[in-house]
Design a protein around this nucleic acid. Structure first.
Lengths: 160, 160
DNA sequence: CAGATACCGTACTAAAATAGTCCCATATAT
DNA sequence: ATATATGGGACTATTTTAGTACGGTATCTG
């Protein structure tokens, strides 16, 4: 949970190996060699990313792949969308749609908002950013994603 | 990927149903009834959250559960830690530890930094915040989590 | 034109994580 | 004593993720 899937990680590694369109091509086999990943896996990922528009391909002998655009114009969110599919947000927890208890269901929706908030944040991170990641670590403000109309510091309202 | 697991969602629903310690108790059966979740599932989650210290329990007849502390003092990160276990960050992608290609491996680490950044952000969101989540949605700044030493806007350095 | 190279798409298998259930032990109120 | 209710672990089922295989198509080279 809250982890980047292996395939997304692989995909990023692969993208980092590709030349930008116009500066040459790299075949799936070459990329596999450089990343130490299995060739079929690399092929699969490249195919998927091609369909997603992150990568362009050339068929035939001397063919291969290249980044569709500069690394600064490829976002982390796009990579995730391509490889993990559109984010599957948790649906309403009530099995049979019995959402009569409004305050409860609103809690479920809050998680969805957090999901979307995180995703939107990932749209701001580019492949180039990922490549240059240094050591320090800073904390984004996620509370803004919820923005309650009126935040109380007491929990009295918890009583059902 | 990047989704809140069902169990975490359930857990939040359940927490929202519990009185704060000192203001009474709710049994697993009662909570199951109010949330429309299966009783064994509710029991399991409450047991887990008790062990994690989010909830306190009283055994025996008339026993039950209560929040260990006010909803403002229970963070989203704590709920996730309790129910999804410590975040399993993607390990080095190189199967046999062959991380000779430094720039490549650094990409993998960047995702880890994003993971941690998101997690840290979640520590700022309380159960009370989740309950009052309103409609608007704001975007946290995740790029801060990477903070490159010197960010270039060109992708020339992509060439391997 | 022939053959080799390399992508395209889909279907399939395998492995792992998630979700959900069951049972027996223990503690406490009446 | 007995009914109620949590504690802990084992177990099964389901879903998701990861990885492989195969037949098809496009393009370069000679």
């Amino acid at each position: 949970m809250l982890r980047i899937s292996k395939l997304t990680d692989y995909g990023t590694l692969i993208l980092a190996q590709l030349p930008v369109a116009g500066r040459g091509l790299a075949s799936a086999g070459q990329v596999a060699g450089r990343t130490h990943l299995a060739q079929p896996t690399v092929s699969k990922l490249l195919k998927t990313m091609t369909r997603a528009g992150l990568v362009v391909s050339t068929r035939g002998a001397q063919g291969g792949y290249a980044l569709a655009r500069p690394a600064t114009d490829i976002s982390a969110a796009q990579i995730i969308d391509a490889l993990d599919g559109p984010v599957a947000i948790t649906e309403c927890s009530s099995a049979d749609g019995n959402c009569d208890l409004e305050p409860i269901c609103r809690v479920g929706h809050a998680w969805q908002k957090i999901n979307v908030g995180i995703r939107t944040a990932l749209a701001q991170v580019s492949l180039a950013d990922l490549q240059y990641a240094a050591d320090p670590l800073d904390t984004p403000d996620l509370r803004g994603a919820l923005r309650p109309r009126d935040r109380r510091r007491d929990s009295a309202s918890l009583r059902s």
